[in-house]
Design a protein around this nucleic acid. Sequence first.
DNA 1: TAGCTTACTACACGTCTGTGTAGCGGAAAG
DNA 2: CTTTCCGCTACACAGACGTGTAGTAAGCTA
Lengths: 201, 201
Amino acid sequence: MSSDLTARARIRDAAILLFAERGIDGATIRDIAQAADVSSGLLRHHFGSKEGLRDACDEWALSELTKIGGQFTEFNTLDGLTPRIQLLQRYLIRSTMDGSPTGAAMFDRMLEYGHQWLATTDLKVADPEAFVAVVAVMKMSLFTMRDLMSRALGSDVTEPATWGRMLQATLDLFSQPLITEEQAAQARAALDRLSAGEEAS
Amino acid sequence: MSSDLTARARIRDAAILLFAERGIDGATIRDIAQAADVSSGLLRHHFGSKEGLRDACDEWALSELTKIGGQFTEFNTLDGLTPRIQLLQRYLIRSTMDGSPTGAAMFDRMLEYGHQWLATTDLKVADPEAFVAVVAVMKMSLFTMRDLMSRALGSDVTEPATWGRMLQATLDLFSQPLITEEQAAQARAALDRLSAGEEAS
DNA sequence: TAGCTTACTACACGTCTGTGTAGCGGAAAG
DNA sequence: CTTTCCGCTACACAGACGTGTAGTAAGCTA
């Protein structure tokens, strides 16, 4: 289907797919080479090592995503994600979780955008740093937990329709408070009690 | 520190720790055995295989968590988590993401509790199934993305104080709407456009 | 034509992994 | 005392992994 690409590009694409699917350690050089229909030696020839390949994938995914539009680091919009972009996101997040510096940089940028976004709202937030981090992490989780989501929804979230259901749900989630003021106050009290007890010890 | 336990228990504890930290595939039998200060053969003697060990850990973690209190599947309370329970949660979620049936069962139970919780609220939700799944996944993400969270907050989230900051932030997040009605309407429109275009194709 | 670089393959090496086997020592049962 | 079981160790095995090396064919430059 994509065999009109350079071998190098085919390797890169196959790597991103397999890395995203099985994790960095889970995908072997040989599997990637086979998926790209080349010898494992060629992979090594082009990228030097597995880490070299991973770096190249990181860089490429990041540049592709920023090229298409900064929206992947944007904070509140989750719409307009083609399966392709979805894959790139999923790869980058996976790579991030497996300790990629490029991914960490992306995460930092997400946090930065998060703070900018937070400044435009009038939300009451006790700890902006923690708040932004939590929102960022939760946003990413929609990509990380893809398998579990698909299982719960009964169909692959890569399916645009299923993806749409997920977006709809996040919209419902973010447009109204999930817990009442009383519940929040109660939880806050419990939290205070916790930190108080900890200081005492 | 915990050397007054049975060797079997020490192996189990070490396995849960290393599995949670490095993933199922990432933690080797030899590493686990060394951490438990036993030979790798003993591990095999007690648990039969690596998958046997993982099953035992799954079962034990699940039973411990349900014994301590069902709150790990409960929907809205994230407080009162000791580092120990935190670890068990983190392990079980990791195991789930790596394809454990026990973990999948736990996830299903989370969804079930989620539906029960949703019924007690008066939230406006278009797609309860998707909604509950999204909330469950996002809740779990606080455990999965532990490293990233720690990085963003500048200190390990296992630290009770840091963990408290995170809980505080989730509380802020869940007790107020993140986006305005206009923004929500706008996003909904974009979503409708998306699904309309997809039906047309 | 000759020389050199580049895309590409085949194959071997050392290491690490999960697993299998043989055996040791102590405690309990006869 | 002997037998038997159980906790436990040491060691060997096959396979998979990332990596290294040698070599082939094609295209470019002079």
